[in-house]
Amino acid sequence: MTVLEDQGTVTTTAPAVTLRGVTKRFGQGPNILDDVSLDVAEGEFLCLLGASGCGKSTLLSLVAGLDRPTTGTVEVPGGRAALMFQEPALFPWLTASQNVELALRLRGVGKKERRERAQELLTLVRLKDAGGKRVHELSGGMRQRVAMARALAQDSHVLLMDEPFAALDAITRDVLHDELVHLRQSQKLTVLFVTHNVREAVRLGDRVVLLSSRPGRVVKEYEVKIGQPRRIESPEVAQLSMTVTDELRAEIRRHGGQS
């Protein structure tokens, strides 16, 4: 467990994701992100926390290469990062395993290998028997797991996650938290996880970065020195969540008259 505690403080290896002075605005609008600098270390689980509309999804699209920063640089030295969207966004005309296979196919993986690898990945998220199901036949939690398998199929060690569990009920979410922590360990992933749920951030992250709203800036960072496996109900998680929530509220209050 001490090993895990140390992970948050690893700074010697090259970062897996680097943002330097990143500013983003759409057209002539105001800055959505303002001078954001952030490093995600190799193997780190970083939670990005911010109120709704503060630019979290925007930041992830920049890292995923779906959009360019207005100024500043975004680097992902390992190549393309995998992204899991806010909604599962599986293709409804494909089965669960075809969804995973498509990710492999677009990477140029051969047909036979595709099938095997998709089956492997589905087994990894414990959906080995659900491969033939269509998306609408899966429950919300199962969909997110297929989406997770599809993201893993991109074979990138950097996984970006945009509030992937926000739409799930608390019980399913809790189970998927365990699942994610497990996967991250077994697959040696670097995770940049976006959420507006403080407890979720503290439950999962090695580090929690607080983002302000309008414009989005990094305001505070917390090292989470609690060993995994953690429980979301544990007093340690609750304690730190309280501190973070207070800071978040103070941050929101600064906008005073606006809301």
Binding site: S139, G141, M142, I171, T172, V175, H182, P229
Partner: peptide
């Protein structure tokens, strides 16, 4: 052990939800 627990938990959830 934790892994097996998780597996059975998820299997249960899946069965309930689908």
């Amino acid at each position: 052990r934790a892994n097996d627990d998780l597996a059975s938990l998820e299997a249960g959830l899946d069965a309930l939800e689908s």
